[in-house]
Structures are given as structure tokens and as C-alpha cells.
Design a protein around this nucleic acid. Structure first.
Lengths: 173, 173
DNA sequence: GAAAGGTAGTTGCGAGGGCAAATACCAGTG
DNA sequence: CACTGGTATTTGCCCTCGCAACTACCTTTC
């Protein structure tokens, strides 16, 4: 088959990793349809909004949010800028540490999420119900968590700022 | 905790999906380090190159490659442009259908992959060995495949062009 | 309490990728 | 064969994101 270096087990493992990427991309694509006309312009926006919606006080520190959303600080800054322009999010300076700031859902943002999350959840339900048994789903989730934690640990040294493997926080879409 | 709509099972399933995205992003980040100084500029480039390397004749139709790499036709066109500028890939017009073309590894591209794939595979081995037992790995892979095929099927209608759930081809990175 | 060093966040810049329109080509009809 | 409709790929335009440099602020040290 292949011209260059491949053995059987090599192929299998490459395929596993490839499937992971394809699954993630496929789900993103699948969800993006409903999300985008639900009012959140992109999946990434929705990802940020939902993490805020699920956090204490519907707000998070910028750096925490960046880590959760798999964005760099710079990427998050602009993403929050856009959401702020849309009136869905506001910035609040942290009183204890005036370098930092919180991103917080506005009332409009909370309303949007109150409407959009059920739709999104219904879509996830449909996928998981059709693809997995409950037992499989639980195991799938557990395996993903181990994998995620492993990458967090390994990426910690130079990768995401201010984020160790410690806090599994609220993972999300 | 959250201010808006959340029940327990909702949280779990949102988390599962979130973990999938975080795992994929985490692995990309983890791999990107070694890949980029291996000669493939980005993970996406490497993704394309490895899929070509693992295909019959080290070539694929543009549309097929786009689907496998989770890119739109337009995105793939530019990605192949870049690889062509680097001398790693060449385009070959399809003789039977002169609208279409193949992207094919050049000798330099094949050489690069012959060097880089073992390194990449070693990295994948390390991750999978540390995170999963062999049995878990097999099940993980099977579950991902079902999920991937489900998204392919559901996205087929409007999403990726020229791509049904038919050919699982060689999944990758 | 002034200096040195670290941390949170933002900005300039450039690369990558999507959507829609355009191009080139095949395929079925009359 | 001309015509209409569909498919493969490319191009124009724009948005998003990462990196590196910068600012503002905290914190430790002397």
C-alpha cells in the first residue's frame, strides 16, 4: 500500500489519532449549523459563552477562560472583544488584582444562552444516544478525561499559560 | 452553580463533548512541537503529507484529500499551494476527468515523510501506552470510528462536498 | 520604599482557512 | 450538436488566531 514507512500497528495507531481529530472536526461542523443561527456567530464564540454560562456568577477570569477554551490569551482577548461588541459579554476589572479582569455574561448574553443551550444539548443527546450505549458513553468520557489530563500535563511546561493539570473545571463544548 | 439551564445529566454530556474537543486540541498542541521542527510547518501540513504518504501511489484527489483533512476545497487548495512552493507536493491533472487533479508527494516529500513519520509514531506510541491499556485503546478507536462515521453521515447533506459515509479510507495524523 | 522580576492582559503583524463567486470541464436532453 | 445542469478546483475577500513585543500592575528583595 503505502510507499514509505508503515507497519500494521503503526497504521492502527495513526488511525486512532486521526479518528480523534476527525471526530472533533465532524462534531464541530455538525453543531455549527444550529449554533450559528442561534445567535452565537461561531462555535468558538459559543464555546466561550457556554463556559461563562456554566460558571459561578456567569463570569471567569480571562486567563482561566482562555485555558478552558483552548485559546491563547491574545486569541481570547479578541474573542471577548467581539462578544462585547455584540453586547453579550462585559469586562469587569478584578478588585483584588487590578492587572486582571473578568469576562462576564450580560443579561442579553444570559438570555441568549438560556435559549441556545437546550437546543445544543438536544443535539448532543441525539448524537450520543445514537452512537453509544450509556455504558460506552461513560467509558468514552472517562478515557477522554485521562487523555485530556495527560495532554494538559505534557503541555504545561511551555503551552497554555497559568494552567496545570489540577483543575478539571467545567469542560464543555 | 450555573445561573441558567442545567441539570446533572446535561452537565455530563456537555462535559463529554468538551473533553473530546480539549483532547483533540491538546494532542495537536503536543504533537505540533516535534512536527514543526521536523520540517512540516504546521500540524495541518503534516496531516496532509501523512495522508498522501499513506495512500496508493502517494497521491490523492484534491476533494478526497480535503475531506480527509477536514478542510474545505478552498482551504485545501491553499494548503497544497504552500506544500508545492516548498517542493513537497506536486499537482497532476486527472486524465479521466480533466476538471480534477491529484496532489502527489514529490521525492523530497516522500523523503521528508520517511524521516518524520517514525518520530511522530513514537510520540503517539508514548501517549497511547501511557494513557490506555491495549484493550481500552481498541475500544476507544472503535468508538471514535462510530462517532466519526456518524458525523460524516450527518454532515454529508450540506457539509463536506463529495463525501458520503462510505469510504473510511485511511484516517490519520 | 526603590529596584528587579514576574504575571494579566492587550496590540501589531502575519499566516491559515471559510464562504461565495468564478472558471473549466463533464453529462444528460432535445 | 447546442443547451442546460452539475461537479472539481481556484480566487477574492474577510475573519480568526498565534507569536512576540508592550503596558500595567503585583511581589519580593535589599
Amino acid at each position: 500500500m503505502a510507499t514509505s514507512t508503515t507497519s500494521e500497528s503503526v497504521d492502527e495507531r495513526l488511525t486512532t489519532v486521526g479518528l480523534l481529530f476527525e471526530s472533533a472536526a465532524g462534531l464541530r461542523r455538525l453543531f455549527s449549523r444550529q449554533l450559528e443561527d442561534a445567535g452565537a456567530n461561531t462555535q468558538q464564540s459559543f464555546d466561550i459563552l457556554i463556559r461563562l454560562a456554566r460558571s459561578e456568577g456567569t463570569e471567569l477570569r480571562m486567563s482561566e477562560l482562555a485555558a478552558q477554551a483552548s485559546l491563547t490569551p491574545s486569541g481570547l482577548t479578541r474573542a471577548v472583544d467581539r462578544l462585547q461588541d455584540q453586547g453579550l459579554v462585559a469586562r469587569r476589572t478584578c478588585p483584588e488584582d487590578r492587572r486582571g479582569s473578568f469576562a462576564q455574561l450580560t443579561p442579553a448574553g444570559r438570555q441568549l444562552m438560556a435559549d441556545a443551550i437546550p437546543v445544543h444539548v438536544a443535539q448532543i443527546d441525539r448524537v450520543l444516544d445514537e452512537v453509544f450505549t450509556p455504558a460506552e458513553e461513560a467509558e468514552f468520557s472517562a478515557m477522554l478525561r485521562r487523555l485530556r489530563d495527560y495532554t494538559l500535563e505534557r503541555n504545561a511546561s511551555s503551552g497554555c499559560p497559568g494552567l496545570e493539570e489540577s483543575a478539571p473545571t467545567c469542560a464543555e463544548v
